[in-house]
Design a protein around this nucleic acid. Sequence first.
DNA 1: CATTCGTTTCGTCGTTTGACGAAATATAAT
DNA 2: ATTATATTTCGTCAAACGACGAAACGAATG
Lengths: 121, 121
Amino acid sequence: MRDFMAITKALSDPNRVRILLALRQGELCVCQITELFNFAPSTVSKHLSILHHAHLITSQKSERWVYYRLAEKKLAPVAVREALDWVHKSLGKTDEAAADAKKLKRILRTDLAVICAGQKC
Amino acid sequence: MRDFMAITKALSDPNRVRILLALRQGELCVCQITELFNFAPSTVSKHLSILHHAHLITSQKSERWVYYRLAEKKLAPVAVREALDWVHKSLGKTDEAAADAKKLKRILRTDLAVICAGQKC
DNA sequence: CATTCGTTTCGTCGTTTGACGAAATATAAT
DNA sequence: ATTATATTTCGTCAAACGACGAAACGAATG
């Protein structure tokens, strides 16, 4: 029950759901997501921490950045796997997800250092 | 997205999840759920209203009571059906659900009028 | 070894949530 | 019609939440 509620609480905020949808394009670091949503880095970090705590995403440090990605289907608990499937199946093709995906594609084409320079984080 | 968030917000409270688990035993009226959880009737009514608004449950008035039941699999939107499956599969066999189910069985054996008399609602 | 820089933690502020009791509503019983 | 009664709505309160900026952290750079 405890684990399950961590997942449902993580999913109860639309911006966290948007993050899960964005992560379908592959791993992303904090500043890329910050750029995508125009939120303060601390806000994004908090959202990622909540998603991580629910085991919906994993993190990995590489060079200067911390990359987050969706939990591996093979390794994740059943409840997590089904939650991710549910989110992606329900919202993967919405206009909102498409708009974010489009903006994200542009961000992914930009050098990370440039993005971070634009945010004085 | 709007509909989806209504569902995730509905699922983000443990007592509402408990209600969804309890409703697997069949339709229940407000005072039966009130008895099960020892909450004020107004609190239970609010929870049911939120679940109803998310289309996870339906209501039907009969005699003096309003009965709530799980949304019909055949009629419910896909997101609703999958949410209910997910909840029941993830938590249906937990100790917590079993304890509620046991208490609920006792309540279901009791006459409704007696239950309502015990709550001065 | 000091500095830089991406990220996280902390404290604050306004909003939302979940609980309650009191009052309103609507329906059944008398 | 009037009274009971099951449910809902409303107002209130404490706790949780989501946003932010400032400060702390920690790893790579100089």
